[in-house]
Design a protein around this nucleic acid. Structure first.
Lengths: 192, 192
DNA sequence: GCAGGAGTAATACGACCGTCTTACTTGGAT
DNA sequence: ATCCAAGTAAGACGGTCGTATTACTCCTGC
């Protein structure tokens, strides 16, 4: 196996990743990916059997990136509170992208929920990964309802991204992030 | 102008409305609408110049339906608190649809945010309508930051729909609705 | 009773979609 | 030097997309 081939495979995945985010999965054609990479359209079949296969590889790639991001959150602070605050900062660090295209996890999942159920399940993995990690943080805070708190936090972040993107409102992100972080700190204070 | 023609126009709009919700705008073809209505594909051009025109008519139709729904909320109770609680109940009354396809307003807006900016603007009207109405309710409660509260409430509802749809979790809707209604009542109690 | 606009049926059109195939070019093992 | 698998270039394929056109039926006003 040549290194050139693997390099192309990777370039396809990364270009598709960006395009799926910016335009959506269904609205991204092989031609789009071809133009972005310079790789002829017909060659994708050599690396992937179907378009769904590309999506699968993109999602796997995103799961790796999310895992790395979570590791970084763990390194950011010693306490679960620090980690949760670091996590919520993704709203600010990805602000410009969120305003333009929404949350990559949420918008892809919403799109695929209306397609084949199998694709929906695949895209849900990203949410599950975040949910599980957040749950562990809340458990480390001694919370009995850690999974519920994880869902609540994910939902609040999703809501902010949807509305901020709809109204292209950066101030709303900033204000909401503060509210969310207050909410996290409040949960970290109270016992049970 | 015959009444038959208007009847067909209406049938196209209503079938497209459903399909745009269940499958998404881009994933709904003229053929789909044709099969749902029995109206030949080629005839759509007689009623609408382009697919975007159908979308415009569908959104106008939804705005009318939302306006009627808000009027119903106003009739449901005399106080702004009653109205806000009635509004939030859409999460429960539309539960099954939300679990399957998400929020019709949110998912359409998220989809169109990745298409032509003009379409995005059109779809945002629904959010604007709800935002304005909620703002008026919070103003009636004497809130100085009524618009911010309106955005916060919309965002919370959106977040719940996205996560509930992703995990197909009806219990999460029920639990979150209670949280949201507690939040509304809390806002109604506090002054300023 | 017929002229003419409203509405219907059916299909042609070019473009693009995802998929698949073929022919060609490498570069390393033998 | 030769061979062969790995990878590349280019395009054919059938299907479907949104759009547009044509020919037809029907009803109404005169």
């Amino acid at each position: 196996m040549g290194t050139k081939g693997d390099g192309n495979r990777r370039r396809i995945i990364e270009a598709a990743d960006q395009l799926f985010y910016k335009r959506g999965y269904n609205q991204t054609s092989f031609q789009d990916i071809s133009e972005a990479t310079g790789i002829p359209r017909g060659n994708f079949y050599y690396y992937f059997k179907t378009k769904d296969d590309i999506l699968g590889a993109v999602i796997d790639n995103r799961l790796d990136a999310l895992t790395a991001m979570l590791k970084q959150c763990e390194a950011a602070g010693g306490t679960p509170l620090d980690r949760l605050l670091a996590f919520s900062n993704i709203l600010e660090t990805n602000r410009d992208n969120v305003l333009e295209s929404g949350c990559p996890v949420g918008t892809l999942d919403s799109e695929l929920a209306k397609d084949d159920p199998q694709l929906h399940e695949k895209s849900r993995q990203a949410f599950s990964l975040l949910r599980q990690w957040l749950r562990e943080q809340f458990e480390a805070l001694g919370k009995a309802n850690a999974d519920e708190l994880a869902m609540d936090l994910l939902a609040r972040i999703q809501g902010v991204t949807v509305l901020a993107c709809a109204f292209n409102d950066a101030d709303f992100i900033r204000r909401s992030l503060k509210d969310i972080q207050d909410w996290i700190e409040c949960r970290a204070m109270n016992q049970a």
